[in-house]
């Protein structure tokens, strides 16, 4: 039974000061403007935002899972499955229903993950790596391993290429996704329950919360965010790609970690996600503009994750020590 009132929230998502990632983000931006040729042009910055937008939407979903104390590796594979499903049903049902079908498959995988993590108490790593494998296998199996082109259609390409009042649709969608996430986390009942379960699942259960259901809802909502990202990705590549975004889970986890979400769960703010995403997007963009091999993106991402997590943890230790000595 779930109690009607939640009297105590362990750490409400309030920020008394801007997250440290904001400063890093600003610094990196200035550095890129100075050192990277062609970085500070309108076209390139819009491109950074456009690519970052998809990452941001999916990272919003990743943030929910991380707040719940979990980790989600299946996003890339489920986005690939969504693109394949969309393009396969497209000729029969039309672009809108096709995209909805693709999105439904992502949410379905989120539900499976949530059920296994919440109800069956499996470690999130095992569950989401398993569904990653299954979704990726299913996507390849459906199309025989080869990409499947979508028939050209204005409606179908709108999510990636359309503009509303001159603003690209992906960027609008990202802003919308961040707003929804913020409302869920800071003002919604379910968001508060996610913080409870993430901070201490056992305590949440002893307090009478239905941790399994809350976890299930969290993974499903995360799936919904990923589904929006998958729609935009599918529309951008205009085809069903069984190997659509293999690094998507890594990049979203990295964005959350760099933004300052503790991977132990129970804490996090939407602004941290936004700044983390911007840092990752700028790094990736700068690597391409400097003409380094693309593999540097992976190396830098890995080092940035380790550096960010290490710094945040030791920052807290340093602050505590400083507080004691005073």
């Amino acid at each position: 039974m779930m109690s009607k009132r939640v009297p105590f929230a362990p750490s409400l998502p309030r920020l008394s000061r801007p997250p440290a990632a904001a400063l890093v983000c600003l610094g990196l931006f200035l550095l890129c403007c100075l050192l990277v040729p062609r970085f500070a042009t309108y076209g390139n910055l819009e491109n950074v935002l456009r690519v970052g937008a998809i990452l941001c939407i999916v990272a919003c979903g990743q943030a929910i899972v991380i707040i719940l104390g979990g980790i989600e590796f299946s996003f890339g594979a489920s986005a690939a499955l969504a693109s394949v499903v969309t393009v396969m049903v497209l000729p029969a049902v039309g672009p809108v229903a096709g995209l909805v079908a693709g999105a439904a498959s992502v949410i379905g995988i989120g539900l499976v993950n949530g059920w296994l993590v919440g109800r069956m108490v499996l470690p999130p790593v095992i569950v989401t790596l398993g569904t990653l494998m299954m979704a990726s296998g299913a996507a390849s199996w459906l199309v025989g391993g080869l990409p499947l082109d979508a028939p050209p259609s204005a409606v179908f390409s709108w999510p990636a290429r359309g503009r509303v009042l001159g603003v690209p649709v992906p960027i609008l969608a990202a802003v919308l996704a961040c707003t929804v996430l913020h409302v869920l986390l800071a003002h919604g009942r379910i968001g508060r329950l996610w913080y409870h379960v993430g901070a201490n699942p056992l305590a949440a259960r002893l307090a009478g919360l239905d941790a399994a259901r809350i976890t299930l809802l969290g993974y499903a909502t995360a799936g919904a965010f990923c589904a929006v990202g998958a729609i935009i990705l599918t529309s951008r590549v205009a085809s069903g790609q069984p190997a659509l975004a293999p690094n998507l889970p890594f990049e979203t986890i990295a964005a959350c970690a760099i933004g300052g979400l503790p991977l132990a769960g129970g804490r996090g703010h939407v602004l941290q996600v936004v700044f983390g995403v911007l840092i990752v997007a700028m790094l990736n963009n700068a690597v391409v503009l400097i003409n380094l091999p693309v593999a540097w993106q992976l190396v830098l991402l890995g080092l940035a994750v380790l550096a960010a997590v290490g710094l945040q943890r030791d920052w807290a230790v340093l602050k505590r020590l400083a507080g004691r000595s005073r």
């Binding site: 991977l263 190396v299 890995g302 380790l306």
Partner: peptide, 21 residues
Amino acid sequence: RFQPIVATLGTLLAVKGLALL
């Protein structure tokens, strides 16, 4: 004292990139 998943995810990305480089 990193969480194993964070530490090995970081090295996974870095090592994968190094192998390509």
